[in-house]
Amino acid sequence: MTPPRSWPLAPVLAHRCGGLLAPENTLAGLAAAAEAGCGGVEFDVMLSGSGSPVLIHDETLGRTTDGHGRVALTRDENLRALDAGRWFDARFAGERVPTLDEAAARCISLGLSVNLEIKPATGQDDETARVVARRAGELWAGVALPPLLSSFSELALEVAAQLAAHLPRGLLVERAPPDWLQRCRRVGAAALHADARYLDRSTIIEARKAGLWVATYTVNDPGRAQTLFDWGVDCIITDRPDVVRASVTRHRSSTGYPAGFGVQSC
């Protein structure tokens, strides 16, 4: 059987807020994605040392801020003092590590659909999922298009299912393991999110027959994106939302909707 309803998010999502258009996991990235015409974004949420949900990918601060040390040991007041934009380009100097509250408000105001990855620091799967799932449910309460929660952590997805059952969930994998379908069933995932380098057509077909959506990351080549959509994926996550979105839009207009396209705009 095919998924019971259309993929709820935009079919092309900007990776880590804005892909390569802005510093990752920042409010500037959300603005860049919207300006590029992208209808949705993917971003990572981890807990600070104060237990607050914030947007950041790494467990340490050094790559994407001017700080040092572990995110999970950095209190909010110190995290807020860091520059999260200058590393990318001087134009973004002063950009901060945003809170989930700030990102949700900006996404809602910009009309961006959201794939929120629950990104626990080591040993914090349960706690991170509890905080993030609850807060996401509150922040998007009453919004027509709530976020989809994804994670590599199966424990985090199980916790999210208990606390925010109304939010759809996706199991993140690199190469799909032999028991990927059983794992999706066990955590109540509505979607399989797989690395495009290892995703094949047979897995996509099997997932869709099982009633699952399929999202894939990180696809920066327009030709590869078109092939994956033709195979039946529902969503491409990309660092180049400007290039991929434009190419896919042209492809859709010339050939009609490829298999797997949802109803949202790119």
Rank of each mutant, 00 (worst) to 15 (best):
K119E: 02
G40W: 00
L148H: 06
N25A: 02
G142V: 07
N78C: 11
V143A: 09
C17F: 08
A136R: 02
G232F: 01
G260K: 02
L163R: 09
L181P: 12
Y198L: 15
L9Q: 07
D200H: 14
A191K: 02
W87D: 11
S151A: 07
S52K: 04
T60W: 14
N78Y: 10
S109K: 14
A103T: 11
G62S: 13
V173F: 01
G40D: 01
I205T: 14
Q124V: 08
V187I: 05
L212C: 03
A136M: 04
V219F: 00
G111M: 10
W213K: 06
S254E: 13
A160H: 11
A191F: 01
E117F: 08
V243A: 08
P8A: 05
H166F: 09
G188L: 07
E95R: 03
A103F: 12
V132N: 03
E42C: 02
T203C: 13
C107K: 02
S150R: 05
S150V: 12
T65E: 10
V71G: 12
L172M: 12
R86N: 14
L47E: 09
L30G: 04
L55D: 07
V173K: 03
N78F: 14
L139Y: 10
N115V: 00
L157R: 07
A72M: 04
A121C: 14
D66H: 08
D230K: 00
E35F: 08
V54H: 01
E35L: 06
V12F: 01
